[in-house]
């Protein structure tokens, strides 16, 4: 029983990193209705910015965090300008293929800058795990979970209580109608992309500071985990993204415990596949009306 509770807690902690990644994904997806495979790699570019600063200049934790976010935003806007802004309505799949190509590009760029397989990343919080009765909780995990909750609340508030959020929801509902009430749709989409990348940057920073290492594989990892968490939670729902992440984490940790590390991911993917097929809308979302059509 204690094991079960401990595993669930660990799952929630790890899941908060997936939830963080899913938040940024949800913002991009909500606005574009298109799949951005480069989402993780843009976060990774940010991470490499931070790592360079840390390794070569001995930057502190806050400076590294700022660099990660800045790098993610710059490369996120780069992706938006190349893969999304120029693609007209109906070319959703062209955007997806382009974002895949940019993924390869960003990964290569990262390897060119830092060619080794892994690099150290500054730790978030050191010190022993907190003991709560028989249970253990890592302090940096707590910070990550807190960060995820805080960020989700900020995004939710921004979406529903600011002018920017109002414009964004107008674009999500109907870009033409948004144009007609005076929303500069192109500019707003770019800003939303930048905001989503910044969220991704924060997520990436927290995840890497917990892992204390960065590899070029982080990009693909972040895309996959964020995407899966978003899909489980339900498209376009901010609380859903967070919840989906936590659930994914819990499923992973339990299956790790029950079946071992090799089967963990296998099990997670099977759960996802079954989940998507059984409940296509996710936990809190509606069924997606996605623009991926590709008329001949």
């Amino acid at each position: 029983m204690i094991d079960f509770i401990q595993n669930t807690i660990d799952g929630v902690m790890i899941g908060s990193s997936y939830g963080l990644l899913a938040l940024g994904f949800t913002v991009i997806f909500g606005v574009m209705r298109r799949l951005n495979l480069s989402y993780g790699p843009t976060v990774m570019i940010g991470a490499y910015f931070g790592t360079v600063l840390y390794l070569d200049f001995g930057a502190g934790l806050l400076a590294v965090a700022a660099a990660v976010v800045a790098g993610a935003v710059i490369s996120g806007v780069y992706v938006e300008r190349l893969c999304f802004a120029p693609m007209k309505a109906g070319a959703g799949i062209a955007s997806m293929v382009s974002s895949f190509a940019i993924w390869m590009q960003l990964e290569q760029a990262a390897v060119l800058v830092l060619p080794r397989h892994t690099y150290p990343f500054p730790p978030l919080a050191t010190g022993p795990a907190l003991e709560i009765g028989p249970l253990l909780v890592r302090p940096d995990h707590l910070i990550m979970l807190g960060g995820a909750l805080l960020l989700a609340a900020v995004v939710q508030l921004a979406l529903y209580h600011t002018r920017f959020g109002l414009g964004l929801r107008a674009v999500i509902a109907n870009p033409i109608a948004a144009n007609l009430v005076g929303v500069d749709v192109g500019r707003l989409v770019m800003l939303a992309f930048a905001a989503a990348s910044a969220i991704g940057g924060v997520a990436g920073f927290l995840v890497l500071a917990v892992d204390q290492q960065v590899t070029p594989m982080f990009g693909m990892w972040a895309t996959l985990k964020g995407l899966i968490a978003m899909m489980i939670g339900g498209l376009g729902s901010i609380p859903g993204a967070l919840l989906g992440g936590l659930l994914l984490g819990v499923v992973e940790v339990h299956s790790h415990w029950l079946f071992g590390p090799q089967v963990r991911d296998l099990f997670a993917y099977f759960v996802l596949f079954a989940f998507l097929v059984a409940r296509p809308g996710g936990l809190l979302g509606r069924t997606a009306d996605v623009e991926l059509s590709h008329r001949v």
Binding site: Q262, F270, F273, V277
Partner: peptide, 28 residues
């Protein structure tokens, strides 16, 4: 058959999950 229930991005991700599951099957 199960994929019929999902469309668009959902199908992309569902098939991606299946693909990764198969890959991990061969991994084990």
């Amino acid at each position: 058959f199960p994929a019929l229930r999902v469309k668009g991005l959902m199908l992309v991700v569902a098939t991606l999950a299946f693909g990764e599951a198969v890959r991990l099957f061969f991994f084990n």
